[in-house]
Design a binder for these strands. Structure first.
Lengths: 346, 346
DNA sequence: TGAATTCACGAAAACGTTGTAGTATTTTTA
DNA sequence: TAAAAATACTACAACGTTTTCGTGAATTCA
């Protein structure tokens, strides 16, 4: 950073004014051919590159998109980031990624730091704690200050902005319906606590599929995972709950999990119980990620098209950024269709 | 961004000078108590936060660390980012993550954009293409301009900077030795092309373990995966190679994979061949990630302690950034020990 | 040849911040 | 009571860039 060449230094070296250097590099017709070439050659030899910070300050825009996700380790979020990157790059935007680690406080801190001039707009998915607390003031405050925000996946109505979501209800409905179609009648649901809206919506889809097929609902067939701070602990508790459910109800012949981590826990539990997949129990889950592809048996999944979500979110955000007439204040919610990827577990 | 309150606006509202506002907020003794309190109260009510861009320009530092990784989808890199984040946050630094997607060009573009004033220093792991091309001019140029760089995992001697690596040779040696200890004598190695140095080093460890145990080396036991642009394709080719190896050599009783994706491919191949793990064939691999934990059987792994690596890299980089005396130009290489996590596959 | 144009460049402001160096007032000191 | 010192502020430069507005000098026109 300290050896960086600036317009001023070049101007001094070449005995011209700063404006002349600046204009030459921008091919301004105001500058004579000879001078322009001389300056451009010198700049090239020095490896001059304009300082982005100075440009940002001057232009009041950074050409950077901030992304805040709860967890990099989740395959789905990684895909979304990839999608965002692609579109951003195509449009000359940078992407910076920050992590909330499912923590409300980290989400607030990251949001505020990035909002202080570092980025032009946000794409984010709420942390679990934020949804639990139902405290969205930081997001709303950011929006109020004129910063465009696009929410994806974990969205809530209390925040007014563009949103990109998966049709969770339908995806869950389709998944459940597939199991029912295969003759399964006692389907165990592995979901989250209700404050995680994707879990809640997927639960709704599951219920609707039961109703539409005139199957009786049974509360004992719905397991809502506890939410300690350690996901390892959560999973071992979930495993135990699954085993218990099977011991209490020998009829269970299918499992629908709202993400692949839960499905992984189910696989382990079934193995312990010596139940064969898919012969005795079929499994389907959300998140078409690594676990689904590499587990034995491989898992049938509801693919959320993370990359598509990222692309959509990025292009919507960039639309907002480019059109200056901020009069436009109608926000839209874009729904990305899910697809079922059938594998060995069904 | 447009409604953001600035010092100037506040100064205007309160009929004082900009300096007075600035100093009040910094609790300067130059300002009278009454004025100071009045200004602080107003600033608070307006939700004033200093503009980072302006600060960066003035201070010639951004308090931001740039991280470039080849792929978010790799669990190992995600862990490293987590580690970096923790240390950075503790020291008041921001972290921005950019992805090279294993592409040389994206690595160069990201490096240059971030280097143009957006960050104070880099932590990065080289893309596969960069290692293949052996073209490191962009990194060296960045270093030459006075930007501190810390390389991790995929490092090469041609770049002079601090480095954080795993003891790949020893990790691979230990892994191979474990299989030998269990009585395995014909161990298949699944590795990368030699230009990926971690693959090369792990291959060395494998060879050394064979030599130290007076076992004969067999080139047919070493499979180097091809490198097309599609990892899906790579994997199906790898699977076929594994099947072929087993058909040609019925003696194979162990597999050592340099990452868990390769081990996943091995699992699928063995299943097709109807070979039981670990009874007929044992498996061990690098990367203690999701696949290893959720596959059936679960995989014994060499844990690289990604979070530790990230923490180490971040603290070394911050050390460089804080000590201004750039006279210090001796660089160090820090080695993080690996640990073997034993699971069902051995 | 004198006036009007064009050419080729420079000066300065602006973005938001901080810190140094003033500068009026008031208070203390001798 | 005059000089010195403290108080409570303001002005201004600087960070690197772009861009508008000047401005001398050279060129063209009548």
């Amino acid at each position: 950073m300290k050896n960086k060449i600036t317009l001023k230094k070049m101007a001094h070296e070449l005995n011209v004014s700063i404006s002349t250097v600046s204009k030459s590099l921008k091919d301004s017709p105001e500058i004579g051919d000879e001078t322009r070439e001389r300056i451009k050659a010198f700049a090239k030899s020095q490896g001059y590159r304009p300082n982005n910070i100075a440009l940002s300050l001057k232009n009041k825009k950074t050409k950077t998109i901030g992304v805040i996700i709860p967890d990099v380790v989740h395959y789905f979020f990684a895909l979304v980031v990839n999608g965002i990157e692609q579109i951003a790059r195509q449009n000359g935007y940078n992407v910076v990624v920050a992590l909330s680690n499912e923590s409300f406080e980290k989400e607030v801190v990251n949001l505020e730091t990035l909002a202080d001039g570092l980025i032009d707009g946000f794409i984010l998915s709420l942390s679990r704690e934020t949804m639990k607390n139902q405290d969205y003031h930081h997001i709303n405050e950011t929006i109020r200050q004129g910063m465009p925000v696009v929410l994806f996946d974990r969205v809530i109505p209390e925040i007014e902005c563009d949103k990109v979501v998966v049709d969770d209800v339908k995806g869950a409905y389709d998944a459940t319906a597939l199991l029912i179609e295969k003759g399964k009648k006692n389907i165990l649901l592995l979901t989250t606590q209700d404050y995680v809206n994707v879990g809640r919506l997927r639960t709704q889809g599951y219920i609707k599929a039961f109703q539409d097929n005139a199957l009786p609902l049974d509360n004992d067939l719905i397991i809502k995972t506890v939410d300690t701070q350690s996901s390892d602990k959560d999973m071992s508790i979930l495993e135990k709950s699954i085993e218990k459910a099977f011991r209490n109800n020998k009829q269970i012949d299918g499992i629908f999990a709202v993400n692949e981590i839960y499905a992984g826990a189910a696989l382990r539990a079934l193995k312990k119980l010596n139940l064969a997949v898919p012969d005795q129990v079929s499994i389907i889950c959300f998140t078409d990620g690594l676990i689904s592809k590499y587990s034995t048996p491989t898992l049938t999944t509801v693919k959320q098209h993370g990359e598509e979500i990222g692309k959509m979110a990025a292009s919507k955000l960039i639309d907002r950024l480019e059109k200056e007439d901020d009069a436009e204040t109608t926000f839209e919610e874009y729904v990305i269709k899910t697809t079922i990827i059938e594998r060995e577990s069904t």
